[in-house]
Design a protein around this nucleic acid. Structure first.
Lengths: 248, 248
DNA sequence: GCTAAAGAGCGTAGCTCATACGCAGTTAAT
DNA sequence: ATTAACTGCGTATGAGCTACGCTCTTTAGC
């Protein structure tokens, strides 16, 4: 951990490595507090409500005071996206890779669901924040006893993370849309499809519609969404198992 | 396709079902043109550059003229997200489900890559746009000869779409970040990791770093990214194959 | 103790955006 | 010919980000 190379400013902020000021007025604000306030606002009112003014108000300060601690709103968003991840759960002893990755994926997803705005924060590079790296380590750790080499472990974990990110995007955005507009997930969806789908042009979709697959009173059902996630997750993990068998 | 039930206004717009005005000045603008112009701007300058003023300028009109055709910027974004999808490719005859889904997934991803802003447009409900439904139909069609029931087909396709969406998000956002900031994907990443990762706290990640997995001159390599996608896709499809074997 | 540098908080103002409102000009129906 | 319907768009409002610089506070150095 030699400090020969200077870390980028935002990474240093993520790790809380700012050197403490020696003179001047005591700061009444800190990066951590600002980040926490921003997350509170985003959780309660959505990412759209996170303005510098709103966050400052949450802290009882003036808007411009935040800029002493944070370079820009973009930087604040980056800080939020690491801080929102809590610590990864400890793996129970003697967890095999499959149980471990299943626990990992469902916990990641549950964390994302608690902060639905997470999917809207742009990625700005490979992971470097402490929480991000802790989760990364946790996933890699579940594969420790497999015959995969280190590069393969990363690839398998990235594939899983890709799937979880997709699920997060679909899930949280549809959930939000459901909250403010439940009708589009009701019977009117099947009705609209029947109006708009010409079975000659879209035969496969026509068959699905005819089979009544969309004739639920509520297409956005928590239970169904979770079951679909588990189904897709299991398919991916079946693939990993097959790869391990071929490999090991 | 009886019109007994009124389609929502935005869906009607997507399908071009607005009744043509009988009186008044001939429109010099159309929803399709506005959408196309907005997509041009987004492709060339990013979604951030898409303002009502910029789109109007692209068309040589005044800002407020757009509002005669489009209710709000949000509605324009919805229109963009359907129009950006081109038509799905015709499946070569006698394509089996696996080749079909592979072709489908890679084509979807290629389409997304041509419009990197796609991942940033919020989903507003289940798919109803013509292009979206065409792609949906195309994927479902590849599963026509399998023993899956219609509901299972939807689940399998949604799982695959989830994975592709995740890949799209990671891929396009990292690509954008790479374009405007290539250094963070260079050797400085491994250097930063070595400074910040304590092998006692993050042992699995420490092993990966030590193994030199991140010691590439460029972590964001098109080839590698594609290979990783193919690897994850194959794992998922292996899982589907196993499910089909169990099922059929 | 005194002075000055360093740093915090923040008021003001400039710029970009979305969009409500209403006017003026244009076309087709009557 | 008249008028209803409809388009294009100028103006204005309010919200948001943030550059700049002033003022007050704290501590280092003497």
């Amino acid at each position: 951990m030699a400090e020969e190379f200077e870390l980028p400013a935002d990474v240093a902020l993520l790790w809380g490595l700012r050197e403490t000021p020696r003179r001047g007025r005591k700061p009444s604000l800190s990066v951590a507090e600002i980040t926490r306030a921003a997350i509170e606002v985003a959780d309660a009112e959505g990412l759209g409500a996170v303005s510098m003014a709103r966050v400052a108000q949450q802290l009882g300060n003036a808007t411009m005071a935040l800029y002493r601690h944070v370079k820009s709103k973009d930087e604040l968003l980056k800080l939020m996206s690491d801080a929102a991840l809590e610590e990864p759960p400890p793996m129970p002893p003697a967890t095999d890779w499959r149980a471990g990755l299943t626990l990992w994926a469902t916990t990641v997803l549950a964390t994302f669901r608690r902060h639905p705005w997470y999917a809207r924060i742009p990625l700005s590079g490979p992971p470097l924040g402490p929480k991000n790296l802790a989760w990364f380590d946790s996933a890699l750790g579940t594969l420790a006893d497999t015959p995969l080499d280190e590069g393969e472990k990363v690839t398998v974990v990235m594939g899983l993370l890709t799937f979880v990110h997709g699920e997060m995007r679909l899930t949280t955005e549809l959930a939000e849309s459901f909250r403010e507009n439940p009708e589009v997930f009701g019977p009117s969806y099947a009705r609209a499809l029947r109006q708009v789908v010409d079975p000659r042009r879209l035969p496969a979709l026509g068959r699905v519609v005819d089979a009544g697959v969309f004739d639920h009173p509520n297409l956005y059902d928590e239970q169904d969404v979770d079951a679909d996630f588990r189904f897709g997750l299991d398919l991916y993990l079946d693939g990993v198992a097959a790869y391990l068998a071929r490999r090991g």
